[in-house]
Amino acid sequence: MNHNDSAANSVIASQLVADNARLQILPKHFGAHHLYVENLVFVFARTLVPTYRGGYWRFYELSNGGFYMAPEMASARVCVEGNGFEGELTADAIGITVCLFAFSHGSFVLTGHAGETCARHYTWLREYSWLHPEQSLISAAID
Protein backbone atom coordinates (compact mmCIF):
# COMPACT_ATOMS: atom_id res chain seq x y z
CA MET A 1 0.00 0.00 0.00
CA ASN A 2 1.50 3.29 -1.04
CA HIS A 3 0.45 6.02 1.37
CA ASN A 4 0.90 9.01 -0.95
CA ASP A 5 -1.69 11.72 -1.48
CA SER A 6 0.07 13.82 -4.13
CA ALA A 7 2.90 13.78 -6.62
CA ALA A 8 5.07 15.72 -4.17
CA ASN A 9 5.00 12.77 -1.78
CA SER A 10 6.79 10.60 -4.36
CA VAL A 11 10.00 12.27 -3.18
CA ILE A 12 9.63 10.40 0.12
CA ALA A 13 7.13 7.55 0.00
CA SER A 14 5.62 5.68 2.93
CA GLN A 15 4.79 2.01 2.83
CA LEU A 16 2.43 0.25 5.23
CA VAL A 17 4.25 -2.56 7.03
CA ALA A 18 2.62 -5.94 6.45
CA ASP A 19 1.11 -7.66 9.48
CA ASN A 20 3.61 -10.52 9.27
CA ALA A 21 6.54 -8.05 9.51
CA ARG A 22 5.26 -5.97 12.44
CA LEU A 23 7.21 -7.81 15.16
CA GLN A 24 10.55 -7.17 13.43
CA ILE A 25 10.04 -3.54 12.41
CA LEU A 26 10.67 -1.70 15.68
CA PRO A 27 13.85 -3.69 16.48
CA LYS A 28 14.98 -3.08 12.88
CA HIS A 29 14.74 0.68 13.35
CA PHE A 30 15.56 1.14 17.07
CA GLY A 31 17.56 -1.92 18.07
CA ALA A 32 17.63 -2.87 21.74
CA HIS A 33 15.73 0.31 22.66
CA HIS A 34 12.68 -0.47 20.53
CA LEU A 35 10.34 -1.08 23.48
CA TYR A 36 11.40 2.19 25.09
CA VAL A 37 10.75 4.13 21.88
CA GLU A 38 7.40 2.40 21.35
CA ASN A 39 6.39 3.26 24.92
CA LEU A 40 7.38 6.89 24.34
CA VAL A 41 5.01 7.01 21.37
CA PHE A 42 2.15 5.73 23.54
CA VAL A 43 3.00 8.18 26.35
CA PHE A 44 2.97 11.14 23.96
CA ALA A 45 -0.29 9.90 22.40
CA ARG A 46 -1.93 9.89 25.85
CA THR A 47 -0.44 13.30 26.63
CA LEU A 48 -1.29 15.10 23.38
CA VAL A 49 -4.58 13.49 22.35
CA PRO A 50 -7.19 13.85 25.12
CA THR A 51 -9.51 11.21 23.59
CA TYR A 52 -6.79 8.59 22.98
CA ARG A 53 -7.44 5.42 24.96
CA GLY A 54 -5.12 2.93 23.30
CA GLY A 55 -5.69 0.66 20.34
CA TYR A 56 -4.14 -0.73 17.19
CA TRP A 57 -1.35 1.22 15.47
CA ARG A 58 -0.31 0.95 11.83
CA PHE A 59 3.42 0.95 11.09
CA TYR A 60 4.94 2.73 8.09
CA GLU A 61 8.44 2.71 6.64
CA LEU A 62 9.67 5.68 4.67
CA SER A 63 11.76 5.54 1.51
CA ASN A 64 14.33 7.86 3.13
CA GLY A 65 15.04 5.29 5.88
CA GLY A 66 12.49 6.53 8.41
CA PHE A 67 9.59 4.99 10.25
CA TYR A 68 6.43 6.08 12.01
CA MET A 69 3.35 4.64 13.66
CA ALA A 70 -0.21 5.93 13.33
CA PRO A 71 -3.15 4.97 15.53
CA GLU A 72 -6.18 3.38 13.96
CA MET A 73 -8.73 5.98 15.01
CA ALA A 74 -10.87 8.82 13.71
CA SER A 75 -9.54 12.34 13.49
CA ALA A 76 -9.02 13.83 16.92
CA ARG A 77 -8.09 17.01 18.71
CA VAL A 78 -4.41 17.40 19.56
CA CYS A 79 -3.44 19.73 22.39
CA VAL A 80 0.17 20.73 23.07
CA GLU A 81 0.35 22.45 26.42
CA GLY A 82 3.93 23.65 25.89
CA ASN A 83 3.15 25.82 22.85
CA GLY A 84 -0.60 26.34 23.06
CA PHE A 85 -1.38 24.40 19.88
CA GLU A 86 -4.85 22.92 19.57
CA GLY A 87 -6.19 21.44 16.36
CA GLU A 88 -8.02 18.56 14.72
CA LEU A 89 -5.69 16.10 12.95
CA THR A 90 -6.27 12.88 11.04
CA ALA A 91 -4.94 9.66 12.55
CA ASP A 92 -1.99 9.72 10.14
CA ALA A 93 -1.02 13.27 11.14
CA ILE A 94 -1.49 12.35 14.81
CA GLY A 95 0.91 9.46 14.34
CA ILE A 96 3.51 11.64 12.67
CA THR A 97 3.17 14.32 15.35
CA VAL A 98 3.33 11.89 18.25
CA CYS A 99 6.32 10.07 16.74
CA LEU A 100 8.16 13.36 16.18
CA PHE A 101 7.70 14.17 19.88
CA ALA A 102 8.80 10.67 20.89
CA PHE A 103 11.85 10.58 18.61
CA SER A 104 12.93 14.06 19.72
CA HIS A 105 12.61 13.09 23.38
CA GLY A 106 14.50 9.86 22.77
CA SER A 107 17.30 11.76 21.05
CA PHE A 108 17.89 13.72 24.26
CA VAL A 109 17.39 11.06 26.95
CA LEU A 110 19.06 8.08 25.27
CA THR A 111 22.83 8.06 25.05
CA GLY A 112 25.24 7.04 22.33
CA HIS A 113 23.97 5.13 19.31
CA ALA A 114 20.38 4.93 20.63
CA GLY A 115 20.10 8.71 20.94
CA GLU A 116 21.65 9.19 17.52
CA THR A 117 19.18 6.69 16.04
CA CYS A 118 16.24 8.64 17.48
CA ALA A 119 17.71 11.88 16.13
CA ARG A 120 18.05 10.37 12.64
CA HIS A 121 14.49 9.06 12.74
CA TYR A 122 13.27 12.49 13.85
CA THR A 123 15.03 14.09 10.87
CA TRP A 124 13.71 11.53 8.38
CA LEU A 125 10.15 11.82 9.68
CA ARG A 126 10.34 15.61 9.78
CA GLU A 127 11.38 15.61 6.11
CA TYR A 128 8.39 13.41 5.29
CA SER A 129 6.05 15.62 7.34
CA TRP A 130 6.91 18.59 5.09
CA LEU A 131 5.19 16.72 2.24
CA HIS A 132 2.10 15.73 4.23
CA PRO A 133 -1.27 17.39 3.44
CA GLU A 134 -1.48 18.44 7.12
CA GLN A 135 2.07 19.80 7.19
CA SER A 136 1.06 23.17 8.63
CA LEU A 137 -0.80 21.57 11.54
CA ILE A 138 2.01 19.10 12.25
CA SER A 139 4.57 21.92 12.21
CA ALA A 140 2.43 24.10 14.49
CA ALA A 141 2.03 21.21 16.93
CA ILE A 142 5.76 20.45 17.20
CA ASP A 143 7.06 24.04 17.23
Rank of each mutant, 00 (worst) to 15 (best):
V43Q: 09
P27C: 02
T47L: 11
V11D: 13
A32H: 06
R22G: 04
A93K: 05
H29I: 03
L89E: 02
E61G: 14
G82M: 12
Y56G: 06
I138F: 03
G112W: 08
I96M: 10
S107V: 03
L110W: 05
M69F: 05
S107T: 00
L110C: 00
L40M: 13
R46F: 07
Y52Q: 01
R120E: 08
A7P: 01
D143Q: 11
E88Y: 12
Y68Q: 05
N4T: 15
G66S: 08
E116C: 03
T47G: 05
V43D: 14
R58M: 11
A18M: 09
A91D: 15
R120P: 03
S75D: 15
R120S: 10
I96W: 02
L48H: 04
S75W: 06
K28I: 03
S104M: 13
V78W: 00
F44E: 04
D143L: 09
H3K: 12
F67H: 07
Y36D: 12
G82S: 13
V37G: 01
W57Y: 13
A7E: 10
E61L: 12
G95M: 06
Y68D: 06
S129M: 03
N2W: 11
L23P: 06
Q24I: 09
E81R: 13
A70I: 03
L110R: 02
D143W: 11
